[in-house]
Design a protein around this nucleic acid. Structure first.
Lengths: 253, 253
DNA sequence: TAGTGGTCTAGACCACTCC
DNA sequence: GAGTGGTCTAGACCACTAG
């Protein structure tokens, strides 16, 4: 038979997706306990009535998800539970606010074009050169209540037109997405105590624990922007649901 | 030609991996700007000297990573930059300490078998039943210095043998990995101020900002364990490096 | 050395979508 | 309707590794 077998299948799912789900449930339900040997590709392919390559695709995906361990010659085993690691997703602020059913607004607090300083290294990731930077501070508001304090540096050379933008109520992050062709970034998440100035802006008691997210973005080798986001600890949390290895796709908070 | 072309290739990489890297760099370097149309599969396959399926695999991976957007009939385009979301990895505590070059040790502070209480709902994720729970508190130490305070509840019915374990210097998490066949978990990360008791145990000033990670683990429908990990904010951070969509694989802190 | 997974090919059919 | 991506197949070769 050359043509694929078009028998009824779970709606909207491909052959290998169906197989993946089937085998995953065998593992999760305990029918295939950890460490047990499972049949070789060729036998499973025959059993499911698919070609070996389709079965390989399914088993490969399960291995990437951490449910299976595959080794040549010794075959495929059900994986042992992994270390208790996980993956947490950081959502976009605007989406985050809107998903919680509140109205989103950005309010610019300050805007300056100035020479780079020593203290900027936190957001730049490298010792500051002699270049000029665009420095911004603003509040993300949820129902007009402080949700997140943003402090940002922008490299005017990499982000063309940035100095011409006033960012009055357009969040710099949103503008940059349009203006800069691509980005690779690094994140860092910490807990910090709010300083007096930060507490005032976020309407918090001084010293309140806050979640600090520092993100540095690059494009074509040059740094484009660095941002520090400060969330009140009580209002914000990162959430993830996951399977064994970190596979199943993190759920955004 | 039926056999694959075994000409020289970048060491340790497959054909489609090589193509993925090549096209990704074309995009990141700006040769293929966002929104631009790229050649159809068949032409790219010919250009790279591979079969259409191999090219499909490469383009599919780039699409999963968020670099490309593929639509039938209209073809494949370079993706526009996404929202500034990201994915952060939570590492296993022991690995985390060891990776920082310090000696790891677990020290049990308290251990109790008692009835479930209202306050346990945080770690159980559901209102407590009338069942008994195993309650533990211990410190993870890095070079004998407090690194993380762990508070844990274990369901003795789901984790057989738990009540017989004393956990004197074996972290409950490590033991559970061996004892319970599988787990699905949810995570929550917040910033909190250390209470007086927590501050004392972690050798911190009262009110110091801490990173709180709450993890609930289930197996076969029943809750197995819930744990609250408290890290001094100054000592701990979550780190991720990523491409556009959240693809490139988060790096553990 | 034999068995297993990893990868690749050429060809095919289908579903979707834009024209 | 025609072009594109999505998927599948049968067969093949290779690399690795356990016995």
């Amino acid at each position: 038979m050359s043509a694929p077998d078009r028998t009824v299948r779970a709606k909207g799912s491909t052959r290998h997706d169906h197989i993946v789900e089937d085998i995953r449930s065998l593992i999760v339900d305990g029918c295939w306990p950890p460490g047990s040997q499972i049949p070789v590709e060729t036998e499973l392919a025959e059993r499911y009535g698919v070609s070996r390559m389709t079965m390989n695709k399914a088993l490969g995906q399960l291995a990437r998800e951490g449910f299976l361990v595959r080794r040549k010659k010794s075959g495929t085993q059900v994986a042992q539970p992994r270390a208790e690691s996980a993956v947490v997703a950081i959502a976009d602020i605007r989406d985050e606010v809107r998903n919680s059913g509140r109205a989103y607004r950005f309010h610019l607090l300050a805007r300056r074009v100035r020479a780079a300083r020593e203290e900027d290294a936190l957001l730049l990731g490298s010792p500051p050169g002699r270049a000029e930077v665009l420095w911004l501070q603003g509040l993300h508001l949820a129902d007009d209540h402080p949700f997140c304090l943003e402090t940002r540096l922008i490299n005017p050379e990499a982000a063309e037109g940035a100095t011409g933008q006033d960012f009055g109520d357009l969040a710099p992050g949103a503008w940059l997405l349009e203006a800069v062709p691509w980005s690779v970034a690094s994140h860092r998440v910490r807990a910090v105590n709010a300083t007096a100035a930060e507490a005032r802006l976020l309407a918090l008691p001084v010293g309140e624990a806050c979640l600090e997210i520092v993100r540095r973005t690059q494009a074509a080798g040059a740094w484009v922007t660095g941002v520090r986001l400060l969330y009140p600890g009580s209002e914000h949390q990162l959430v993830a649901n996951f399977g064994p290895e970190a596979g199943d796709g993190p759920v955004r908070s």
